[in-house]
């Protein structure tokens, strides 16, 4: 609580938006007035009491799809970040501790992944494996594993160079102890901040892929593809397609604000 009181307004705003999104996503079936793929009326119905945000290109309720979208888009982004993070961080710490050929092999593989722009790599890989939700999650996890690996390796390298690691090694401690008890606690704050930032990237990335029609596939409700499906409305001056796009922006801004605050606090604590 004292922590919250010291938070700047931007961070408080961020926390509020994040909490609201999580609640919407978790309880989507209870909150949404209509089903995710339920056709409830004509196409492109304007905003009304019955359909607060109107209907989409197939006559589904926009608001309900927005709420389900919170579940799908955010949920998948969380899942993907989680996979990329646990594997990337574990491999990075391991490479830093072991060094030698293991480090070389892992690092060169990561170099290759990072030598290709993420969106292009994702498009190429998805062209090969075909667009589907599990494929997309896998491909993005592989792509974002690379920067997480680099960061955690670099952070762990700084720790490995310190004498207390040498002291533990001289004692004969095993790899698991060294990783979990000696290294991880010292890089966890870096990793947590990075997790926030990576989540933003992954979230935007999924949204972009879905917008391009290669990510989350219809009829699943998702904020990225909802923009695409209803984009024609823009040309009539209707802002409805901007709402899912705005939701993406809002959530990402919020998380960035939170991460910024955390980083600021961490740097402040150090000095």
């Amino acid at each position: 609580m004292t922590l919250l009181r010291t938070a700047p307004p931007t961070a408080l705003f961020g926390l509020l938006v994040l909490a609201a999104t999580l609640v919407l996503g978790l309880f989507a079936p209870l909150i949404a007035p209509y089903g995710e793929t339920e056709i409830v009326g004509g196409e492109y119905l304007p905003w009304s009491a019955e359909h607060p945000l109107g209907t989409d290109n197939l006559g589904r309720d926009m608001l309900s799809r927005m709420i389900y979208g919170a579940r799908n888009t955010v949920g998948l982004a969380l899942l993907t970040t989680g996979i990329a993070f646990s594997i990337g961080a574990a491999l990075g710490m391991f490479a830093a501790l072991r060094g030698g050929w293991i480090d070389q092999a892992l690092s060169r593989a990561v170099d290759v992944i990072m030598a290709v722009p993420p969106l292009i790599l994702a498009l190429m890989l998805l062209a090969i494996v075909g667009p589907s939700i599990p494929n997309m999650v896998g491909v993005i996890a592989v792509i974002y594993l690379a920067p997480v690996y680099r960061l955690s390796r670099a952070a762990a390298m700084n720790v490995v160079a310190l004498d207390f690691i040498g002291a533990a090694q001289l004692r004969g401690e095993g790899t698991i102890w060294l990783l979990r008890r000696e290294i991880l606690p010292n890089i966890s704050s870096t990793l947590v901040a990075e997790a926030g930032l990576r989540f933003c990237f992954v979230f935007l990335f999924i949204a972009a892929l879905s917008f391009l029609g290669i990510g989350i596939q219809p009829p699943t409700a998702d904020w990225g593809s909802m923009v695409k499906e209803n984009a024609t409305l823009i040309t009539f001056g209707d802002v409805t397609p901007l709402i899912p796009a705005g939701a993406i922006a809002l959530l990402t801004v919020s998380i960035n604000f939170i991460v910024d605050w955390m980083l600021h606090r961490a740097s402040g604590l150090k000095s």
Partner: peptide
Amino acid sequence: ALSAISMPEFFVAYL
């Protein structure tokens, strides 16, 4: 800058 980074390109574009 933080806000601009957080916006998907298609949001900015449609706006």
